[in-house]
């Protein structure tokens, strides 16, 4: 296969298995998606959108990283963003809570409506916004403080009183409580990688945001830690809107309600730019992709 865009799949991500696991995905969502697909148009069962992206584009200096992304992100569901590396998944995700404001030279155009309001508008307060739209990153990044202080940090900056109950609740939600309840004063660095990532999720949950963005939250973790985090994502999806970037298609199939597939357009160096190829329910994308590029990607044939 001659490609200029490598699929981000690991060797064991056999394309056929993906379709199988999509078919046998989580009982709750997949069944709902199946019924929805049988009953009529695909969209309604996803619920009303909390984010509406309209022609979103991002430039890093003179390089256009993402162009013309338009999609809706349903509330209280899990949306996965998949695609080859470098196609602008992280860039798109980071627009949703204005993290790109912090990158010197980054420019964002288009609209992102959040509850009907454009959050990219220059008079929106990005600090306040990030308190409502939390983020978890690829590499676990606990602060060099105790486990408890890590949780309380976000609460304090958002004016939430850091009570013991709230700390406990966040750790319970992040499925970490049983492992750390006796060592809350320990350094966060003493935790394992998977535990650190769950701590980062707990830290985000503790702020009580409306949305949690996750950028490849499992890519630095082993399979068991990954499963633990997938379980916890499914558990908290009823309370939060989750937008998850992943390069693991099986993971997208296992956890997501909606899938957005991004890819790179333009071959020459300098004109390569990320675009949204297709968005639909997990079932649509994995069993009946409309865009040939999506199909090529999920079946492992790219180019």
């Amino acid at each position: 296969m001659t490609t200029n865009v490598e699929p981000d799949t690991t060797a064991d991500d056999a394309p056929i298995e993906i379709q199988l696991s999509a078919g046998a995905a989580t009982p709750t969502h997949a069944v709902a998606a199946g019924q929805g697909a049988a009953a009529g148009p695909a969209q309604p069962e996803l619920g009303p959108p909390i984010f509406q992206l309209r022609d979103l584009g991002v430039w890093y200096g003179k390089n256009e990283a993402v162009r013309g992304v338009s999609m809706d992100i349903p509330k209280n569901a899990i949306t996965a963003i998949i695609g080859p590396s470098g196609c602008g998944k992280s860039t798109t995700l980071r627009c949703l809570n204005r993290m790109n404001d912090l990158v010197p030279g980054a420019r964002v155009n288009g609209e992102i409506l959040f509850g009907g309001e454009d959050l990219l508008s220059s008079d929106v307060d990005p600090v306040d916004l990030r308190g409502r739209i939390g983020m978890v990153f690829q590499k676990p990044s606990p602060f060099p403080k105790s486990i408890k202080d890590n949780i309380e940090f976000g609460m304090k900056v958002n004016g939430i009183k850091p009570t013991a109950e709230r700390v406990e609740q966040a750790l319970v939600d992040a499925a970490l409580w049983d492992e750390v309840k006796d060592r809350l004063k320990d350094e966060a660095f003493s935790l394992s990688g998977g535990q650190q990532q769950r701590l980062c999720i707990a830290r985000a949950i503790a702020v009580e945001p409306e949305v949690i963005l996750m950028d490849e939250p499992c890519s630095a973790l082993d399979p068991i830690a990954t499963l633990a985090i997938e379980d916890l994502m499914k558990n908290i999806a009823e309370r939060f809107t989750l937008v998850v970037v992943t390069h693991n298609m099986q993971q997208a199939a296992r956890i997501s309600d909606q899938v957005a597939f991004m890819t790179v357009e333009g071959k020459a160096e300098g004109e390569r730019c990320g675009v949204l190829a297709e968005v639909g329910t997990a079932r649509e994308i994995f069993s009946a992709p409309k865009d040939p590029r999506t199909e090529a990607y999920i079946t492992g044939r790219v180019g």
């Binding site: 969209q43 309604p44 809706d72 509850g115 009907g116 600090v127 306040d128 190829a277 297709e278 865009d291």
Partner: peptide, 27 residues
Amino acid sequence: MTTLEAPGTPPPPPAAATRPLARKRSR
């Protein structure tokens, strides 16, 4: 190119956020 909604279906109304977005304030 981008499959947003099936043609003919009216766009769903957006879900409400818990509160309006805060305006920039001086700190």
